[in-house]
Amino acid sequence: MSELDQHVDTARRATRVAGDYSHVLLVRDLPAPAGEVWSALTEPDRISRWFLPVSGDLRVGGAFTVEGNAEGEVLVCEPDSLLRVTYGAPDSVVELRLSGSTTLELEHTVSLDVADGAGALYVGPGWDISMLWLLKHLDGTLPDDPVAAENSLAGQRYSAQAVHRWADTLTGLIAPDALASAVDESLAQYAPDLPRPA
């Protein structure tokens, strides 16, 4: 078991369907007070350490770009408690909620058109590894190169485990064949170098 493996079950995951949307929820307790977490979530120089470089106008109504990933708009920004942005499309909304000492809830709302409702398998594992890097940034154990760590075999094993945890949240929400297909596609994206079961 790698050092990363011990973290896969410290996150809580859930998926629910409401109307035409799937709501993908990742909850993680973080080792820092809300102000410190908020700084890591909203200051471009800190975001780039654990996530990706971000540029643009990071105020309500402002547009931003996440390098090599997505564009969006800041919808709500309530310091130390709530950040809501569009992410990649106007109806793809990411909400970050901070509470307690300190719990981060990340909810990504995606259209059911995304992979026949299996959106959790397309967005969940990516957020999973990103939130792990945020935790490690906050506790001072972030790898020097998070991208290389994510692409390492240990990083891919973590992501593969996360894929299966996300698949569990979809059981009963989508057809078994669609779920199996989405798991295969998600594993190919997030853990491309790991062997697949025959």
Score class of each variant (00 low, 15 high):
Val114Arg: 12
Asp128Lys: 01
Ser101Met: 08
Thr169Ser: 05
Thr103Ile: 03
Leu98His: 04
Ser39Asn: 13
His23Asn: 10
Val8Tyr: 00
Ala11Gly: 01
Leu134Cys: 11
Gly19Arg: 13
Gly61Trp: 02
His23Leu: 14
Val163Leu: 09
Glu3Pro: 00
Ala180Leu: 10
Val17Trp: 01
Ile174Ala: 05
Thr171Ala: 12
Leu173Trp: 02
Ala63Gln: 14
Gly172Asn: 06
Glu150Ser: 15
Leu98Glu: 03
Val85Pro: 02
His7Thr: 04
Glu107Gln: 13
Leu132Phe: 03
Leu121Val: 08
Ser130Arg: 15
Ala188Glu: 05
His164Gly: 03
Ala70Asp: 01
Ala148His: 09
Val147Lys: 15
Pro176Cys: 09
Leu121Trp: 02
Leu75Ile: 07
His137Met: 05
Arg165Thr: 00
Val76Leu: 14
Asp139Trp: 05
Ala32Ser: 10
Asp116Val: 08
Ala34Lys: 14
Leu179Tyr: 04
Ala32Val: 06
Val17Asn: 12
Val24Leu: 10
Glu185Cys: 08
Gly172Thr: 05
Ala188Thr: 14
Leu30Asn: 02
Val24His: 05
Pro90Trp: 01
Ala63Phe: 08
Asp144Tyr: 00
Val37His: 02
Arg46Ser: 04
His23Ile: 07
Ile129Val: 15
Phe64Pro: 06
His137Ser: 08
Val147Gly: 12
Val123Ser: 12
Ser99Gly: 15
Phe51Gly: 03
Gly56Met: 05
Trp50Val: 07
Val85Leu: 11
Ser130His: 15
Ser39Glu: 11
Leu82Asp: 03
Asn151Ile: 01
His7Gly: 02
Val93Met: 07
Ser111His: 06
Leu52Trp: 12
